[in-house]
Design a binder for these strands. Sequence first.
DNA 1: GTCGCATGAGAAAACCTTTTCTCACTTGAC
DNA 2: GTCAAGTGAGAAAAGGTTTTCTCATGCGAC
Lengths: 325, 325
Amino acid sequence: MAAAAAVSISTASKALNDTGRMGSETRERVKRIAAEIGYRPNALARGLLSKRSFTIGLLTNDTYGRFTLPVMAGISDALVDHGVSVFLCAIEDDPALAQIHVDAMLDKQVDGIIATGKRLDRRLPVDLSNLHVPVVYAFTEGTQNSVTFRSDDEQGARLAVEWLVKIGRRRIAHITGPEEFFSVRERAGAYHEVAGHREPVLYGVWAESWGHEAVDQLWKRPGEKPDALFCGNDQIARGAVDALRERGVKVPQDVSVIGFDNWEIVAAQTRPPLTTVDMELKELGRQAGLTVLALAEGRPVEPGVRKLPCRLIVRQSCGGKAPQG
Amino acid sequence: MAAAAAVSISTASKALNDTGRMGSETRERVKRIAAEIGYRPNALARGLLSKRSFTIGLLTNDTYGRFTLPVMAGISDALVDHGVSVFLCAIEDDPALAQIHVDAMLDKQVDGIIATGKRLDRRLPVDLSNLHVPVVYAFTEGTQNSVTFRSDDEQGARLAVEWLVKIGRRRIAHITGPEEFFSVRERAGAYHEVAGHREPVLYGVWAESWGHEAVDQLWKRPGEKPDALFCGNDQIARGAVDALRERGVKVPQDVSVIGFDNWEIVAAQTRPPLTTVDMELKELGRQAGLTVLALAEGRPVEPGVRKLPCRLIVRQSCGGKAPQG
DNA sequence: GTCGCATGAGAAAACCTTTTCTCACTTGAC
DNA sequence: GTCAAGTGAGAAAAGGTTTTCTCATGCGAC
């Protein structure tokens, strides 16, 4: 302890924390010696007294990390300045495992919990509604009176379809995931609002093979073909692009294709690279982190669902130019 | 505190921990009441005394999570039974950020640190060699006298090439990543040992486009074409498969293609799905977790590099049958 | 010269456990 | 009936920090 090196015991604490009354030369001396011996206060002892552990828990059932990692990066980014560390707990839809992790986090006196997942319309398999620490939901369904952050899929879909319209496309089809996904219905709704009902919506699964097959279905139909495809995610878009190439249809000259998610590993490696919609998950994580911190510090936060706007990422699968700004 | 609900103070502790001397009826009563009021001991206070926080830190510079997430899953899996939680700290090759995270972890009295990365032959941008807590390296270069876990890329590559030989392929080319990668050289070495020097090794970058381009190069050369491609990772393999399909070369009938990494999102979505080499990163994480725990508990661990065997994942891009076993 | 007040610094309590020590009481043996 | 041994349970210290309280000293004012 610094006390040994310097002179006193509780004086050291006051010196280092710039609290209490004391001579400035004493304060400086203590600080200097503390720095010399590399003294760092024990966060456990501090937390025991202050009731703040400067630790939060991140609970997720997204084992792939597709959604969790960007969210985690945003949380960490926002909280590292505040000295907060993050426990990551990956539960794989296993209620018992989830409960174990939640209990462990509570035992360790986390200041709050952020729950995140891979679907906006599903709950984590554990009840977090009556904990004595604040809980914030990010990209997963929250409980009544909770704070929930989610992407604005409707706005994102509108962004995509409006972009296709703006570059002159008129026959825009929509190939997407299973209709029971809330975000699928929301995106399809926005699609209809902007593009009307001229072309069909093809519901399927979240896989490249479905994008491939959907293009086959569309091109087998008699009559005019679509001049644009708005796909429910980047994997579907990739499958669609591959299918179009195999049919000799040129992307983006003949058909524009737009994805959703901006999953770099898929979107950037597609030929041509995909124009897509980014859900700004890192920003979502950042806000979730700051919110749980605010709640932990007792600052009031309005409950409710916060929709964060998506952003259009223009690459080469649509043609057109990036918007200036 | 349970003391209030029950009768005494230190007796409660002994009752719940099955230590000390006391009447069995007292012990049972305390336990029952503790369970009723949902009492859970404060891990901070316990850690303060026992010098064990049941917390470890996972430091990574792999922002994509391609390698970190499976490792993390293994660690968590191994340690959750021991009541250990994991701080995840993503540092993006930023030494200052890394130091901040390490300091934060040490302040929080982690029992140990696992350092992990995305390259076997690179260090994390922070020195962990003189900490007062044990450090274990996983999938990143460790320091002298440290414990390091890594995949056995040589064995993995041998597994792949031997498989190609076994199913009857003779002209096996190797398309891989940048030669400065240690694992690239190791895999290429094993490739040469098994396949000889009949076909070239093409060094490039870790991208689909490179796999595509490499196939173009190989097929533009005069003379007989390869009947198998051993690719340095799944992305390259995917690019190669796509290029072969565009050339009208059938996979796996005409050419077998094998990847490396078993990155499901790439390997399983390729058409046909890729036979590939899995580095067993989850098992690697599990062992790293158990090792850091052993070190934290003072159990002796032999320093050195531990190579974990890879496993062949047989899908459809090679033909042949899965080995029984 | 005394009183009051400001100032600097240390003592002590509190946070919540675990562990060791002490004490009172019971029981069995002689 | 006394003594030793054994048994059950509480007291106290320790762990590292922060915060409040107390105390001693020195100074200015009257």
